[in-house]
Design a protein around this nucleic acid. Sequence first.
DNA 1: GCTTGACCTTCCAGTCACAGGAAACCCCAT
DNA 2: ATGGGGTTTCCTGTGACTGGAAGGTCAAGC
Lengths: 131, 131
Amino acid sequence: MNIKDVARRAGLPAKTIRYYEEIGLIRPLRQANGYRSFRDSDLHKLSFIGRARSLGFSIEDCRTLLALYEDKGRASADVKALAGTHLERISAKIAELEAMRRTLSGLVDACAGDERPDCPILTGLGGPGCA
Amino acid sequence: MNIKDVARRAGLPAKTIRYYEEIGLIRPLRQANGYRSFRDSDLHKLSFIGRARSLGFSIEDCRTLLALYEDKGRASADVKALAGTHLERISAKIAELEAMRRTLSGLVDACAGDERPDCPILTGLGGPGCA
DNA sequence: GCTTGACCTTCCAGTCACAGGAAACCCCAT
DNA sequence: ATGGGGTTTCCTGTGACTGGAAGGTCAAGC
């Protein structure tokens, strides 16, 4: 399988797959002409990485998850701990964004949005005690 | 005012303030010895930028907001439009993170988290239709 | 056999908003 | 004179790619 095929099947850009090889997440074989040759196992790993990435796991998390995935003697507690930590990061980020949204939403609602210069948004940013 | 003073008062690292000068957000004066000399107006701008950044506005948004802030003939509609667009970006990001959290939370809940290798999290990432 | 076009390769630069650190200069107090 | 803090510039690194240039490879069509 050449890179474009595996890219299509894994749902990842070819550039990204080359990058994943560069950082050692996958190790595809090479054909005589220098082209990368992807096995089913490579495709499988790439799909795994793609799903983990879409859940927001970092590349280093993906590396660990892949290692656990391939370690048949792993303890599910290790996986759960990693995922749990990530879940907390996600929740913290959501809380942060929601705080932003509340503040900003209040400012936007207070702004007339017409041709006049008076603007509570700018006043809020300029004055103290905004965020 | 030297950089450390303005940094403390604006609540920003000195490094960040130098960076803001480098990209042209602020233009502090210089003393004879080459030290930056910050006026009250510089401090004011830096505080403004700090608040805007804490609401998630990009540096380029901040540049635009600063320009609007200083343009006494602005239309508040312009400010509101910019803030509204950003508000939508925030909401979209929150929705994305909440989708992640739902999926991941389901997987984590299904995982026993003991010393055995069976793990729905890895199965979910390995199989299809996860995220 | 030759061209065309789609594929593939490597390498380099850019993204965003800084942070870390090195080397050197400046100023004040002891 | 020395020490310690402040300041300056410059360079590199971050995460996870993305875009593009320059060039090699392959199969089809004429």
